[in-house]
Design a protein around this nucleic acid. Structure first.
Length: 569
RNA sequence: CGGGGUGUAGCGCAGCCUGGUUAGCGCACCUGUUUUGGGAACAGGGGGCCGGAAGUUCGAAUCUUCUCACCCCGACCA
C-alpha cells in the first residue's frame, strides 16, 4: 500500500464528540467515522485492525475444536417468543416488521438461533459435544451508546455456543474457552483478567468476564488483596460481618429535618456521619413491594437483591407507588410503617446499634432506631455493592481494592435454560430424552480493539501491539524528489512485502515532520526512514514507535533487524 | 427515559447578549513558485440554505415557538 493512495483522513484536531482516548484516536487516525449515534463506518485502517483481531480469535478458537458458522442478523420473532425473551429482553431488542407485517428482530445475541439449529440436527449423545461460533454483526438498541466502538448499537461480536450431554463436558469446554480467551488477549498485547460476574439477561449459573484494566472502563472490579479473587461489583460477595456489643439503649426520638430528602442532607443537618443513618428504599417485583434497608453510606446491588428475593423483575417503586404505601419519599423509615411491608436489611447494618431513619412523616427523621428492637421482623442478606476496604466474601480475610475495567469478553455456563424452553433434547446412553446442556462465550471485537488502544497509546497517538497493527512497517521516504530515494523506498517496501511483513510506503510529497506525525498518530510499530542518513552514509533509520528509539541500519541488515524486532515482540 | 449541554465550510472555533454591508478566523483543500529531519513559506483561489420549520420585523446566524440531531452524567451490556 502506498500512503499517497490510502484512504485514511487523519485529523490534527480532536473532534469534540469524542471524549475517551481510544475514540479520539480512532477518529483522528482515520480508522472510523460516525454515521449516527452508536453507528460507525470502518475505514481501511480500522477494518484492517479488526480483521487482524478476528484472525487471532479464529485461530485460537479453531485450535479448541470450535467450528465457525454464520447465522443471520435478522431473526424471526417466533424463536424469541419460544425462549420467552421476546417479552423479557426489553427495548434493547431492535424489532422490525416485514412487508407481511411479520415480526422480526435484529439479533443482539444468538442463543435462540443456534439452539434451533442444533435441536434440528442433534439426536444422540454421540453427536455431542459440539462448539459452534460466529463472528457477526450484532444490533442492540443501547440506551446510551458511547465512547465510539466501545459501546455502539451495531457492533461485531464473536459468539460461541457449546452443547453437551453432561455437566463435566460443559466444564471442560468452559475451561478450554477460558484458556483460549486468555491466549487471545495475551497475543494481542492486552492485559486482561477474568473476574466473576453476574450473568444478567443471558442467564445461567456460572459466568466470568474478561476485563481489560483501564481508567476509563465502565465497570468496577473488586480485587481481593489476600486471595486475589476478582469480581465485577455486581457479583462481588462481601464477608458477613460479626457484630459484638450489647443493644443500644437509645430512645427513639422524632426530629424536624426540613428539606432533607437525601442521606447527605440529613447527615449534614444533624451533624452525623452518613454511616449513622439508614437508607430505606422501596423496590417492587410484580405486585409485591419490599422495604430495603442499607447503611446510609452504602449502595444497593440490584443483582444481589434479585437473587436473594428470587425476583427477576425487581425495580424501584415509582413515586406514586410510594405514596400509595402511605410513605414519603426521602423520609421513609422501617419503624412504625403505616402499612405492613416485608423488610430486607443489608448485613452491614449492625442490628444492635442505633441509627437515624426517616420518620414516615414529611420533613422529619427518627433518631435512636435500633433494628433488633424497633423493627418487627426483617431478613438479613448481602445486598450492597462492595467497595474498596470491604472484606472479601471468598476468603473472609483480605480487603477488596476497587479498579476500573473494560469488559471485552464474557463466558457463561448456561445449563438448560434455552434447551428446555426450546425443547432441544438428545437421547443419552440409556435411551432417555434429556435437554442439552449449553455454554456460551462472547468477545466484543470492536471493543477489544478500542481497549487495545486504551492500553497502548501515548501523547502522540496509538502504539499498536504488532499483532494488531494495521501495517507493521511504515517505509518513509523523507524527500521523494531526492535523487533515488523513492526508488530505494520502493525496493525496501517490496522486500518487506515479499517476506510477508505487512508494510506501507509513505511516498507522499511534503515535509518529514508531517509524515512522522501521521506515522505516530496511526501507530505503526516500526518506521524505516530513507532520508538524511541514507544520503550521507547509506544508512537507513529504523524507528521504534513504542520505545521511541531510532537506530541506523545498513540496507542489507534491514530485513533481519526487522524480523528480530517482530519475533522478540 | 430523567438531568445537563452543543449545533455557523471537511475539522476546531468567533460572531448571537444589544437584529442592519458581501458571515469571519485557524487548520485542511485547489493553482503556481520556492522548499524538504518534526504538521514549510509566499502569492492567488474554491467552498456556507448559520441543523430544520414556523413566527416577530422594513430587515433574522442573532429575538420567539416548535422540531431534529449529536455529546456528557445515570439505569443496560460484548
Amino acid at each position: 500500500m502506498r500512503f499517497s493512495q490510502l484512504f485514511a483522513p487523519t485529523l490534527k484536531e480532536t473532534p469534540k464528540e469524542a471524549e475517551v482516548t481510544s475514540h479520539q484516536l480512532m477518529i483522528r487516525a482515520g480508522m472510523i467515522r460516525q454515521v449516527a449515534s452508536g453507528i460507525y463506518d470502518l475505514l481501511p485502517l480500522g477494518l484492517k485492525v479488526i480483521r487482524k483481531f478476528e484472525a487471532i480469535v479464529r485461530e485460537e478458537l479453531n485450535k479448541t475444536g470450535a467450528q465457525e458458522v454464520l447465522m443471520p442478523s435478522l431473526v424471526p420473532a417466533e424463536l424469541w417468543k419460544e425462549s420467552g425473551r421476546w417479552d423479557a429482553y426489553g427495548k434493547e431488542l431492535l424489532r422490525v416488521k416485514d412487508r407481511m407485517d411479520r415480526d422480526y428482530c435484529y439479533g443482539p445475541t444468538h442463543e435462540e438461533v443456534i439452539t434451533e439449529l442444533v435441536r434440528a440436527s442433534v439426536r444422540s449423545y454421540k453427536q455431542l459435544p459440539i462448539n459452534l461460533y460466529q463472528i457477526q454483526t450484532k444490533v442492540r438498541d443501547e440506551i446510551r451508546p458511547r465512547f465510539g466502538l466501545m459501546r455502539s448499537r451495531e457492533f461485531t461480536m464473536k459468539d460461541a455456543y457449546s452443547f453437551h450431554a453432561t455437566t463435566d463436558s460443559l466444564d471442560a469446554t468452559y475451561q478450554d474457552m477460558f484458556n483460549a480467551y486468555h491466549r487471545i488477549f495475551k497475543r494481542c498485547g492486552l492485559t486482561a483478567s477474568a473476574v466473576s460476574a453476574d450473568s444478567g439477561a443471558i442467564g445461567g449459573s456460572e459466568s466470568a468476564e474478561f476485563m481489560v484494566n483501564a481508567e476509563t472502563g465502565e465497570d468496577a472490579i473488586l480485587v481481593c488483596g489476600a486471595c486475589h479473587h476478582a469480581a465485577n461489583v455486581e457479583a462481588a460477595a462481601i464477608s458477613t460481618p460479626i457484630f459484638s456489643g450489647s443493644e443500644s439503649n437509645a430512645v427513639m426520638t422524632n426530629v424536624e429535618t426540613p428539606n432533607c430528602p437525601t442521606i447527605a442532607n440529613v447527615a449534614a443537618f444533624l451533624n452525623k456521619e452518613e454511616s449513622d443513618t439508614l437508607k430505606s428504599l422501596v423496590l417492587v417485583n410484580g405486585k409485591t413491594a419490599t422495604l430495603v434497608l442499607l447503611r446510609g453510606d452504602h449502595e444497593l446491588n440490584e443483582p444481589k437483591l434479585r437473587k436473594v428475593l428470587s425476583a427477576p423483575d425487581l425495580r424501584f417503586a415509582t413515586d406514586d407507588e410510594i405514596r400509595e404505601l402511605g410513605l414519603f419519599k426521602g423520609y421513609i423509615g422501617p419503624q412504625n410503617l403505616p402499612l405492613e411491608l416485608p423488610i430486607i436489611c443489608d448485613q452491614s447494618v449492625n442490628p444492635n446499634a442505633d441509627y437515624i431513619a426517616g420518620a414516615n412523616t414529611i420533613n422529619a427523621h427518627t433518631t435512636g432506631v435500633v433494628p433488633n428492637r424497633d423493627i418487627p421482623t426483617f431478613k438479613v442478606a448481602d445486598i450492597r455493592n462492595a467497595k474498596s476496604g470491604d472484606v472479601c466474601g471468598q476468603c473472609n480475610a483480605g480487603e477488596y481494592d476497587e479498579q476500573r475495567g473494560i469488559e471485552v469478553g464474557h463466558i457463561f455456563k448456561l445449563g438448560t435454560k434455552y434447551s428446555e424452553a426450546m425443547n432441544a433434547v438428545f437421547l443419552d446412553q440409556n435411551g432417555s430424552s434429556k435437554p442439552i446442556i449449553m455454554g456460551c462465550y462472547g468477545i466484543g471485537v470492536g471493543r477489544s480493539v478500542a481497549a487495545a488502544i486504551e492500553q497502548n497509546h501515548d501523547e502522540k497517538g496509538i502504539v499498536w501491539p504488532i499483532p494488531l497493527a494495521p501495517f507493521i512497517v511504515d517505509v518513509i521516504v523523507a524527500n521523494p524528489k531526492e535523487s533515488d530515494h523513492l526508488g530505494v523506498g520502493e525496493s525496501i517496501y517490496k522486500t518487506l512485502v515479499d517476506n510477508n511483513i505487512d508494510s506501507i510506503l509513505d511516498d507522499r510529497e511534503g515535509s518529514i515532520g508531517f509524515k512522522f506525525k501521521d506515522a505516530e498518530l496511526i501507530g505503526f510499530p516500526i518506521q524505516v526512514v530513507v532520508g538524511k542518513g541514507f544520503k550521507e552514509s547509506g544508512d537507513l533509520e529504523l524507528r521504534i514507535r513504542k520505545s521511541g528509539e531510532a537506530l541506523a541500519v545498513k540496507p542489507k541488515a534491514l530485513l533481519d533487524t526487522i524480523r528480530n524486532l517482530i519475533d522478540n515482540n
